[in-house]
């Protein structure tokens, strides 16, 4: 989780986020990125360094330039947050739908078909 915290903190700065999004659109060198921002090139370099330290961007030497691009593993950390959420939310949905068979009026006469308290087995204890 420490890595996630670092990554998200790196994106919390609006300018740095904009730099990240610029790099996500198209890999580019520092001077190209700086053209799109009203801040100095050294400032852009500093933002890129923070993003690189947080493993959100990678750089590679192409000729005399360093080209920055998004580090897919950085996105993975943020992705896992939503992955965990949907896993839990769907489990919650399953519990709900299987313990409330007659929630919708049109389903009231479907009660007999319900498996007996099946989702109760998944209930977590305090």
């Amino acid at each position: 989780m420490a890595y996630v915290t670092e990554k998200l903190a790196a994106l919390a700065d609006p300018t740095r986020l904009a730099v990240f999004e610029r790099v996500a659109k198209r890999p580019a060198a520092v001077h190209e990125i700086a053209l799109d921002f009203p801040v100095s090139r050294p400032a852009i370099s500093q933002h890129l360094r923070v993003l690189k330290d947080a493993q959100l961007v990678l750089d590679e030497a192409v000729g005399a330039q360093r080209i920055y691009r998004v580090d897919p593993s950085g996105i993975e950390e943020i992705r896992s947050y939503f992955d965990r959420f949907w896993g839990d939310a769907l489990a919650s949905f399953k519990t709900f739908i299987e313990t409330n068979p007659s929630l919708n009026p049109k389903d009231r006469n479907a009660k007999d078909r319900r498996p007996p308290r099946r989702a109760k087995d998944n209930r977590r204890k305090r």
Binding site: A9, A10, A12, L17, I78
Partner: peptide, 16 residues
């Protein structure tokens, strides 16, 4: 969801 990068600091708070 990478479009949510803007919310990074708040997301961090939530995760923590």
């Amino acid at each position: 969801f990478e479009r949510h990068g803007e919310s990074g600091d708040r997301l961090r708070t939530e995760v923590d």
